[in-house]
Amino acid sequence: MRIATWNVNSVRSRMPRLLPWLDQRKPDVVCLQETKLDNDSFTELLADELAGRGYEFAHHGEGRWNGVALVSRAGLDDVVLGLPGEPGFPDPEARAVSATCDGLRVTSVYVPNGRTPDDPHYQYKLTWLGALREAAAGDAERAVICGDMNIAPTDADVWDPAVFVDSTHVTPPERAALAELTKLGLHDVVRDRWPDERVFSYWDYRAGRFHQDLGMRIDLILAAEPVAGRVAAAWIDRQARKGTAPSDHAPVIVDLDEAPDGNIGPMVPPPSNPKRRPGHPT
């Protein structure tokens, strides 16, 4: 089974890239974030295209902002929109959708950004992550949580930690909230597979940061121990971040049991002109 997660930063804008990517990579389950569509618009735009490729889908959207989806050709049962008891800002937002896909309880999440540590959105982020942990705890043996976590787990997951001092995504409370998920037995499968590699999934559009590989790893796949033990390959599809009108995120791909493209990570293709931060080994 191939599982992927991708913050597309607007499905409508990314249509010319999303459909060819599905045809090329042939994922069995795809978690999408930041769809920026309501449910009717998502259905109108994609239902026929996805059905023609053998996919079912579940979408949780609110129109202009946020929006998450699960796209699967490995079953899509017991769909749940949102999280039980989730907080709002001020009302609950379209940030999570879960379903059972071939026995796995897959959740696509778009974690709140947090904005700045002194903004009310930051506390909302921490509270929302607590609700995610509570939801995941009930299915911890088969859980696969995929998405834009808006947290870099360690300093190794940002291109230069000094740039992010006093910013969100790297603060101890955010990282502690993320660690609470791993304490359930969930594995960060990309980092497990590539413990010492420079691996990013997001690059700001500005200042040529993608071409210099000045990025962050904030898009994660967290998998229960039985699932993590099946991982044959785990990698960032950096090709999808190249070219015309890309998302600022690249897909994360994990292959279970078999690796159709071989062990080709951690980022494919590797950056051609990366800048290195001082003291970084690679």
Results as ranks from 00 to 15, higher is better:
G54Q: 08
Y124S: 02
D213W: 08
H121M: 07
V268T: 15
L46C: 14
F42C: 09
P266W: 06
M216A: 08
L178A: 10
L22A: 07
V30N: 00
V254M: 06
T171I: 04
A179T: 14
D148L: 08
D119S: 15
N7A: 05
D48F: 04
V190G: 01
C146W: 00
D196T: 15
W65T: 13
P87G: 04
Y124T: 00
R105W: 08
L214D: 03
P270G: 08
T282F: 06
L70E: 01
T100K: 03
D78G: 14
E34R: 05
G52M: 03
V144F: 10
G88I: 01
S167H: 15
T5P: 01
V97P: 00
G229P: 13
V30H: 03
T100E: 15
R142M: 10
M1T: 12
V165W: 09
L178H: 11
G103F: 13
T182C: 02
R217S: 05
L178S: 07
V170I: 15
Y124D: 01
D219F: 04
I253T: 04
R241N: 03
V254F: 06
A96R: 01
G61E: 03
A250E: 00
N113T: 02
P87Y: 00
V144S: 07
V79K: 07
F57M: 10
S13R: 14
R238V: 07
E225V: 15
S13M: 11
P87E: 01
R14H: 14
P16W: 11
G208M: 12
I221F: 06
K275N: 10
G85Q: 03
W235K: 03
N7R: 08
R142L: 04
G229M: 12
V254G: 00
P153Y: 09
W159K: 07
L83H: 03
D102W: 10
I3T: 02
T282R: 11
E34F: 06
W128S: 01
N150L: 01
E56A: 13
F200Y: 15
L32K: 05
L256E: 05
P274C: 10
P84G: 04
F210P: 01
I253H: 02
D28T: 10
P87S: 02
A234V: 05
T244M: 12
D188A: 05
A51W: 11
I253P: 00
G82H: 08
G262R: 08
H60T: 04
H187E: 15
E258I: 08
A99V: 05
D237T: 00
D255Q: 00
D166I: 11
G185M: 02
G103A: 10
A131P: 01
Q212T: 07
F164A: 15
G130D: 09
K36F: 07
D23K: 11
P278G: 13
A58D: 01
P278F: 12
L181K: 06
I145Y: 00
L184P: 06
F164N: 08
P195G: 02
L181H: 10
E93M: 11
P161N: 05
W21K: 06
I264H: 14
P172F: 13
W159N: 11
G85H: 00
D91Q: 13
E62I: 03
W159S: 13
S108C: 05
V254I: 13
G54P: 08
